[in-house]
Design a protein around this nucleic acid. Structure first.
Lengths: 217, 217
DNA sequence: CCATCCATGTGCATTATTTCACAATACTAA
DNA sequence: TTAGTATTGTGAAATAATGCACATGGATGG
């Protein structure tokens, strides 16, 4: 009875969100959790949790709750994080290196299998994780050879569009873009943007209003 | 006639978003832009752009468009990015270092003025940007001394809640949290979370559905 | 000075998302 | 077996956000 007809995008985001505390709860504590408890841990409404899950099936037991172990498995199945994904990354500055070396990714099945940069001084350098920085012209070859489906862009803004095109031409199906610019892709390639500054700007907007609010209230 | 009564949150996010191409357009090109052009650059609906701006005033000229220079100044005023903000960061792993050294932040007025870590081996180390890594116990002192209003958390998950409490006790008013965990704060302190994995999970969910869709369609 | 053009600002309809509130139902204990 | 309790799953109401469509009003040229 899974009605995947039209799943709200926020629902998908929250599923990923729910899995964080669930993973922690696996190690010790009761084996079952209620939508209310889980909602509390994630700072959302309990009905929201139930509805989000209900889009994909009936995973709970009425009067009891959700078996943590099973629920996590279901969520991972839905999000397709129950398999491994091969990623590459272009732009090996500080940010690029921090992502490649990040343990959280590996733990969740996101495996960096190639790193690229256009800077001749960086090419050939070996990273702590064992990968070697390759020149950008090898993107096409390595993407095909290693079956890379996801590309991560950590170049400066000015290079982001060019790199996007190289990646999508090479057959990459999804791009995670850290450059603060809107990249255009063909239909066949989906993009998610991560822009730290936007988050900061959100914060300072609300901060400023808080201060102003205090004056008038 | 600014009706700041109830501004949708997505609007704030988009304002920051609009400012990116505007900044680029300042350097060369016509001095005026239409909502349609700007919308195109940001991948949103033109009416959306106009409505977002209209929440805060009438910045355009009918029949003409928006003066880029003025519009940018207005947006920066709204977002409170027309001043400098003092930040500190806790957790100087690879990610922490990449943020501190990131030029984009500095360019936008977000100045890191202190860095902290709990690892004795890192404390005292000088970073390329000139800052020295301080021990966590100095957070309170330095936050007050340097007038730090925003804290950035780049520690492992297990330390995030503790650090959040130290920061908010010290008087920090806003936190940008990179740890993949929901931190609790007192009313007086607002939080934004950045979770890369959530973005990736979004991507792979859609990728997987794309593949499935192809089979059935 | 008037007519025409063009892109803004905005009321309103539409669409999307969240939350409520309650019926359905699995366990527990007597 | 039945009453009681707890918590799910979900229709329907409420809320939020988006997008249309057009009146509005500056700018320009005759």
């Amino acid at each position: 009875m899974t009605k995947e007809s039209k799943i709200p995008n926020p629902t998908i985001e929250r599923l990923a969100f729910y899995s964080r505390p669930l993973e922690a709860l696996l190690k010790g504590g009761p084996p079952v959790i209620s939508s209310e408890k889980l909602a509390g841990l994630c700072g959302v409404n309990p009905a929201q949790v139930r509805k989000d899950l209900a889009y994909f099936g009936e995973f709970g037991v009425r009067g009891v709750g959700y078996e943590i172990r099973d629920l996590l498995k279901e969520i991972k199945g839905i999000l397709a994080t129950d398999r491994e994904w091969a990623l590459c990354i272009v732009g090996m500055g500080n940010l690029g290196i921090s992502l490649v070396e990040n343990e959280n990714f590996k733990k969740r099945g996101y495996l960096f299998v190639a790193t690229f940069d256009s800077d001749a001084r960086k090419i050939g350098r070996q990273l702590p994780c064992g990968l070697t920085i390759e020149p950008e012209r090898k993107i096409g070859e390595l993407v095909r050879e290693l079956g890379i489906e996801i590309g991560v862009i950590t170049t400066p803004s000015r290079a982001a569009q060019r790199v996007t095109e190289i990646l999508s031409d090479a057959g990459v199906k999804a791009i995670l873009n850290f450059a603060p610019i809107q990249v255009r892709t063909p239909e066949s390639c989906i993009v998610e943007n991560v822009d730290f500054s936007v988050k900061l700007e959100n914060l300072v907007y609300h901060l400023e209003r808080l201060y102003k609010g205090k004056r008038s209230a």
